[in-house]
């Protein structure tokens, strides 16, 4: 084992030598690049260790996590986030109990009502209005609610676009194409500023739900296209086989088309939800105090003025971490589905 390891390092070094130092010109370029990288690394480390003032991060940790949620109730969003983390770890390395693996998806979906209950309160918990929600909690809430809502909406749109009824087919095509031609920020503006004007007097939807609604409108158009790609790659013979068994149109959609299309579209769908997570930061300029919004409001505090590098480096790390967790979970899901169905 060790022998193989050493010899592969030798081979590696040899190829390095051949590729990077083959002649004078290559050698100079290689040395210049090494120099440049070292200087950059050195300066970064120096800044991180001696110049950066991490007080702006450390003393505001609860703010980043929960926004202006009342401090004595912050255990509620904390419980939710920790349960999400535990569930992630459990999904990845938990035991292989069959009944549990089968219901894992339901448990995941169940975290959303749990989160809403913990955040809103009621039924024994003191109610807290959504304008107090913020920070990472709000970012995650926006992401999971919008993803979960846009999936069924996207599936319906994709099916409508494949429909044989011309009116339905045209309408959904127009919707999908229009949504894909509008920038997300415009849709979000629409959600925050125009929806209240359209609603009849007396009905009010709070800002968080208007944002979720706008994200859903936007993302479902993209999801619809991903799923349509999946639907189109299912051979017609599958439908013939299902027809010959007497399954009706809806049963074919439910049992044959959607499961296969979702499996094919899965990598694209995970991209969408990671993209959605990052795009929730746009809400910072539309007045929601989610993760980026918290950063901006901290920077507006005279005590921390000018420390924007620390804040943004910290925020980048948090976004990176959550995105990585999402990507790992998605890869895990993909692998499980291929093991189940052996290179289908």
């Amino acid at each position: 084992m060790l022998k193989i390891y050493i010899s592969s390092i030798k081979v590696f070094l040899k190829t390095l030598k051949k590729k990077l130092f083959s002649n004078l010109f290559n050698t100079i370029i290689t040395l210049l690049i090494i120099l440049f990288i070292s200087v950059a690394c050195f300066n970064t480390f120096e800044w991180l260790i001696s110049q950066a003032n991490w007080k702006v991060v450390i003393s505001n940790l609860p703010l980043y996590a929960f926004g202006s949620y009342p401090p004595n109730e912050q255990w509620r969003p904390a419980t939710w986030i920790i349960s999400l983390l535990l569930l992630s770890i459990f999904t990845l390395c938990g035991p292989e109990w069959k009944w549990l693996r089968k219901n894992l998806l339901i448990i995941w979906v169940g975290t959303i009502p749990l989160g809403l209950y913990l955040l809103y309160g009621g039924f024994g918990l003191s109610p807290i209005m959504s304008r107090h929600w913020g920070g990472l909690t709000l970012t995650i809430l926006l992401t999971v609610c919008s993803s979960l809502l846009s999936l069924p909406f996207g599936i319906v749109l994709a099916l409508c676009r494949q429909s044989s009824l011309p009116l339905i087919q045209k309408l959904s095509s127009i919707y999908i194409d229009a949504m894909r031609a509008i920038p997300l920020i415009a849709v979000l503006f629409f959600g925050q500023l125009l929806i209240p004007l359209f609603l009849p007097v007396g009905i009010e939807i709070d800002r968080v739900w208007r944002a979720i609604f706008a994200f859903t409108l936007f993302v479902s158009a993209y999801i619809a296209e991903d799923i349509r790609g999946g639907l189109q790659s299912i051979p017609n013979t599958q439908i013939e086989a299902a027809n010959s068994l007497g399954l009706n149109q809806y049963q074919i959609i439910q049992f044959i088309l959607i499961p296969q299309a979702l499996r094919i579209a899965l990598p694209a769908l995970t991209n969408q939800s990671i993209g959605l997570f990052q795009n929730t930061s746009l809400m910072a300029i539309l007045g929601l105090v989610e993760l980026l919004g918290v950063g901006r409001s901290i920077l507006a505090n005279p005590e921390f003025i000018g420390q924007y590098i620390e804040v943004y480096v910290w925020l980048a790390c948090v976004y990176w971490m959550v995105c990585t967790i999402m990507a790992i979970l998605a890869r895990h899901l993909e692998q499980r589905m291929t093991i189940n169905q052996a290179n289908f």
């Binding site: 013979t237 086989a241 010959s244 007497g246 169905q341």
Partner: peptide, 19 residues
Amino acid sequence: QKIRRRVGMVFQQFNLFPH
């Protein structure tokens, strides 16, 4: 539909449901 419930069919390419 009534006929299909009483008539079975087997295809050249099997056409099993892969999922």
